[in-house]
Simulated scan of single mutants.
Amino acid sequence: MTDGYRTFGHGDHRVMALNGWFGSAEAWRPLLPHLDPQAFSFVCMDYRGYGARKGVAGEYSLAEAARDALALADDLGWERFSVIGHSMGGSVMQRILAEAPERVCALVGVSPVPASGIPFDAQSWKLFTGAVDDPLDRRTIIDFTTGGRLTGVWLDAMVEHSVANSEKAAFAAYLEAWARTDFHASIAGSPVPIKAIVGEHDPAISAEVVRSTFEKWYPNLEVDVLANAGHYAVDETPIALATSIERFLAEVR
């Protein structure tokens, strides 16, 4: 792990990976052994206030995260690259597209948050805002978004990782950012190739959600529904996820 990012592979196709609200750059670890290091070069970036960048001050917005990602690409000498975003990271990847469309080869969203944000009812919003201070609320959210079907040992480990790898101020601000920021007008009609990968057991970001949002904005959208996965395919079905990602990116020139 280098300062604020993790690298893997040395291939010609450059790919930036952006984690979700509960993750960090290290959250991609279960996926890495199944990716092709000969074909791809991956960099997994921490946001400000997360992982190796805890203590780095910021406004903790989607725009700031996108600017940081572009600055990292500059530092790495990447003129053009593809982006993978999980959940909140799916929103950040679209913000990168809005900021620098000429630099984006392709997008892959894994249970990606739409660029229009997420509408919450009052009860759900109370649960999500409560997760800032209460680890049990974080556990409830992870359990719900994976269909209430996975071992409590894994749920506890996910919560532990989230708490250890995020500052409360950043965690709270990013919730407001991905849930209540609507910039879809900035990306609507983009010809960029994009794949949205969703889990069959995810009630939050389902195929129906993707088709009612992403499908309206991206003419070159492909949707893949992963069997036996919920919101956290990186952990639940890493081999199937890696296969879906690489088959798509291999076709991008």
Score class of each variant (00 low, 15 high):
residue 65 A to W: 07
residue 236 E to C: 10
residue 56 V to Q: 09
residue 152 G to C: 04
residue 126 K to M: 13
residue 10 H to K: 13
residue 143 D to W: 12
residue 165 N to Y: 08
residue 107 L to N: 09
residue 130 G to H: 13
residue 146 T to L: 01
residue 250 A to I: 01
residue 58 G to W: 01
residue 180 R to V: 06
residue 5 Y to V: 14
residue 86 H to G: 10
residue 37 P to W: 00
residue 96 I to N: 03
residue 235 D to F: 12
residue 2 T to I: 07
residue 184 H to P: 01
residue 209 V to H: 03
residue 52 A to P: 02
residue 36 D to R: 12
residue 137 D to A: 14
residue 160 E to C: 02
residue 39 A to I: 01
residue 129 T to N: 13
residue 125 W to N: 07
residue 231 H to I: 11
residue 96 I to K: 02
residue 232 Y to R: 08
residue 10 H to I: 04
residue 48 R to E: 08
residue 117 G to E: 07
residue 155 L to S: 05
residue 155 L to H: 14
residue 183 F to L: 03
residue 146 T to W: 04
residue 85 G to M: 09
residue 21 W to E: 09
residue 133 D to F: 06
residue 14 R to A: 10
residue 19 N to L: 02
residue 196 A to N: 03
residue 137 D to H: 08
residue 11 G to A: 03
residue 136 L to W: 09
residue 230 G to D: 13
residue 61 S to L: 06
residue 41 S to K: 02
residue 146 T to C: 09
residue 47 Y to G: 00
residue 122 A to R: 05
residue 4 G to R: 12
residue 8 F to A: 12
residue 50 Y to W: 04
residue 189 G to Q: 15
residue 33 P to L: 11
residue 9 G to P: 07
residue 3 D to C: 02
residue 104 V to F: 13
residue 120 F to Q: 02
residue 188 A to C: 15
residue 225 V to E: 02
residue 86 H to D: 07
residue 249 L to R: 06
residue 192 V to N: 12
residue 52 A to D: 08
residue 180 R to D: 14
residue 124 S to F: 14
residue 27 A to V: 05
residue 194 I to Y: 09
residue 211 R to S: 07
residue 26 E to I: 06
residue 101 P to I: 14
residue 197 I to N: 01
residue 141 I to G: 00
residue 179 A to Y: 07
residue 138 R to W: 02
residue 41 S to Y: 04
residue 36 D to L: 06
residue 13 H to K: 11
residue 194 I to S: 07
residue 32 L to V: 15
residue 244 S to L: 11
residue 55 G to K: 12
residue 61 S to K: 13
residue 240 A to R: 15
residue 65 A to Y: 06
residue 81 F to Y: 02
residue 240 A to M: 12
residue 6 R to L: 09
residue 97 L to E: 08
residue 70 L to E: 04
residue 221 L to F: 14
residue 179 A to Q: 08
residue 99 E to K: 03
residue 231 H to S: 11
residue 122 A to Q: 05
residue 177 A to G: 12
residue 179 A to S: 15
residue 167 E to W: 03
residue 41 S to L: 01
residue 98 A to H: 05
residue 220 N to H: 13
residue 241 L to R: 09
residue 131 A to C: 15
residue 114 P to L: 05
residue 82 S to P: 01
residue 4 G to V: 08
residue 221 L to V: 14
residue 182 D to E: 00
residue 237 T to P: 06
residue 133 D to I: 03
residue 79 E to A: 01
residue 81 F to V: 00
residue 210 V to E: 04
residue 189 G to W: 15
residue 141 I to K: 06
residue 6 R to G: 04
residue 223 V to D: 00
residue 39 A to H: 07
residue 246 E to K: 11
